[in-house]
């Protein structure tokens, strides 16, 4: 029961981007196209699940006072190991996702979930939390990216969706466009929540 609950909460109710507002830097940087958003989302989900497992395993041997530096060391080394192994053994996948792996080190979602969830819960729930949060992150990123890619480039997942005569609104691809899109989506989420 609680496994399912931990799994689904990250998708809408505690969506890491729209509700908890975590991981803003990668959100703004990689939501320029749906392709990038999916890549970043998948890479982050993978790392998040693994780091949640790790943190949950070591939670009992980590002294409380130094838990943050320990998490940083664990996550950073883990991400680097994933990065190196992918580059060496699955170079094709690394080519498309590799760009996002180093970015994940600075993704606050990973540390945020380690601190807020994995160090208080067992391994199984931590896995559920990681998957749910990762999916929520991917979903939110894709929504932002869909709006930005269609308006800013006239395409969706590199497929032309708007007519050739459409003059792309370039601002949506730039940083201000990311902030404005995100702001409006958050407002929309809050509006829907109030209605409920």
């Amino acid at each position: 029961m609680s496994f399912i609950k931990e799994l689904t909460k990250g998708i809408i109710k505690e969506n890491p981007i729209f509700v908890i507002v975590l991981g803003m830097c990668p959100t703004l940087a990689t939501s320029t196209s749906v392709e990038n958003a999916l890549g970043m989302g998948m890479a982050a989900t993978f790392v998040l699940v693994c780091s949640n497992i790790f943190i949950s395993l070591i939670k009992n041997i980590t002294p409380d006072k130094i838990r943050i530096p320990v998490y940083v060391v664990v996550i950073a080394s883990f991400v680097t190991i994933v990065d190196l192994s992918m580059a060496a053994f699955i170079p094709d996948l690394h080519k498309s996702l590799g760009l996002f792996i180093p970015l994940i080190v600075v993704n606050c979602i990973i540390l945020g979930r380690a601190e807020a969830f994995a160090n208080k819960n067992n391994v199984l729930n931590s896995i559920a939390d990681g998957i749910g949060m990762g999916l929520g992150f991917t979903l939110a990123l894709s929504v932002v990216a869909t709006i930005r890619e269609i308006l800013g480039n006239g395409t969706w997942l590199n497929i032309k969706v708007l007519p050739e005569t459409y003059d792309p609104m370039l601002i949506t691809l730039l940083a201000p466009g990311a902030f404005i899109t995100l702001g409006f989506l958050m407002a929309l989420m809050n509006m829907l929540k109030e209605k409920k």
């Binding site: 664990v74 190991i81 192994s85 053994f89």
Partner: peptide
């Protein structure tokens, strides 16, 4: 962590 990284690096570096 460092030992692990060094170990991974030792066999991935030539391949990369």
């Amino acid at each position: 962590a460092t030992a692990l990284l060094a170990y991974v690096n030792s066999f991935t570096k030539p391949r990369i």
